[in-house]
Design a protein around this nucleic acid. Structure first.
Lengths: 213, 213
DNA sequence: CTCATAATCAAATCCGGATTTGATTATTCC
DNA sequence: GGAATAATCAAATCCGGATTTGATTATGAG
């Protein structure tokens, strides 16, 4: 088969979506390249046309999920025309809703970070180019994760500054928020009692009422 | 070497503690039997004297962690002589503190459940005795996890009933609590800004103030 | 149409990590 | 002390899953 420039980007993304789904269902350890390939209607070998190895593929999945999350939340956070508290509510709801709409990505975010955390960290100086690049990208990934957390923290601090939230420990509060929110990606089931929107609305209420002045 | 009846139970537990530590640091996929063995001052083969295979070992680690968590929280939940809201606060604080004191176990609870969820679920009828027993024990494990969640839910419902909490969605609130709390086991570092006790106290405040009448 | 390259596949290779095997050494119990 | 068994280990085996290899095919470019 030959070139397919038009579809190239699309294909890569198809693989990532398929991989995210498998990863979410089976977990990193149980997920095999063959399974991912099957989910994307490919054979295992072909995956190596797109990714250097399994870790690189998984990292790409996580990057995609994280960027999707940031894309949802960042515009809201940065809209200086709105009150901080209002923005915070919307950011939370948007993130929770995102997790319910793309549970694959969301749960991968919670479950697979650890697998990545120490991958390829086997002491000894690795000189392999692939490995080097992987380590850099992993570092960037964690940086982006911090960015995500920072978006929330800043808005919380603004809300505290303008008096719409009581003077709480912003850092701890944000970790509390993220823990509760990310957990949704773990237990949420489309066929469950509540819709994503209901969960988002109620959870925002539960988490915010307690910190108003 | 020969019998060591007196130390047998102790040794098994030593292995579990060592394994919990490795698992927490490296994650399921990256953790090798050799690493666990090394952490317990053994060789890999010896682990099979105590556990049928890696999955059984990991499951045992999780069982230990879960039971420890239940043991902390259950007595508080069941103390009918105290007001429900007070009990809830204590349960939360106890659980959070537990997670900071035994981060290995705590994080394993969050990270490795998925790995277990689908282990050995490769369709086809498995008839192996080990596999059968594993599946049963895994089922029991999830049952115990539900028990843990139920402890919180019941106390929350009692607090709602006696008017010390406003009428919220108890199920969702408990999931919110557990998400926020379990997440502590992921990010907590002994050398961090706050002690386990401080985290527990502040987080209880953040999570409970919002649901009072 | 022809060339270069992308996208694929089937099959082979490789390798690490789980598990097994066959001794060997302590302990406990009588 | 001697028997029985627990606890271990070093080394061998096994196997699945990641990765590689060597074609093969389909398009886009000119």
């Amino acid at each position: 088969m030959a070139r397919r420039p038009a579809g190239l980007t699309a294909n890569r993304e198809d693989i990532l979506l398929a991989a995210a789904d498998v990863l979410q269902r089976r977990g990193y350890a149980a997920t095999t390249m063959k399974e991912i390939a099957a989910a994307a209607n490919l054979t295992a070998g072909t995956l190596y046309h797109y990714f250097a190895n399994k870790d690189a593929l998984v990292l790409a999945v996580l990057e995609m999920g994280l960027e999707a999350g940031i894309a949802r939340v960042e515009p809201i956070a940065g809209d200086a025309s709105r009150p901080a508290l209002e923005r915070l509510r919307d950011m939370m709801a948007a993130h929770i809703l995102g997790l319910t709409e793309q549970p694959a990505i969301g749960a991968a975010m919670v479950f697979e970070i650890r697998a990545l955390l120490y991958a390829s960290d086997d002491g000894e100086a690795e000189d392999d180019a692939d490995v080097q690049e992987f380590l850099v990208r992993r570092q960037e990934f964690f940086g982006r994760r911090d960015d995500f957390e920072r978006l929330f923290r800043q808005v919380v601090q603004q809300a505290i500054a303008d008096g719409s939230l009581r003077p709480i420990d912003a850092g701890l509060y944000v970790k509390t928020l993220l823990g509760a929110q990310n957990w949704v990606g773990v237990w949420y089931r489309p066929e469950g009692r509540l819709t994503g929107g209901e969960i988002a609305a109620r959870m925002v209420d539960l988490l915010i009422e307690g910190v108003r002045p």
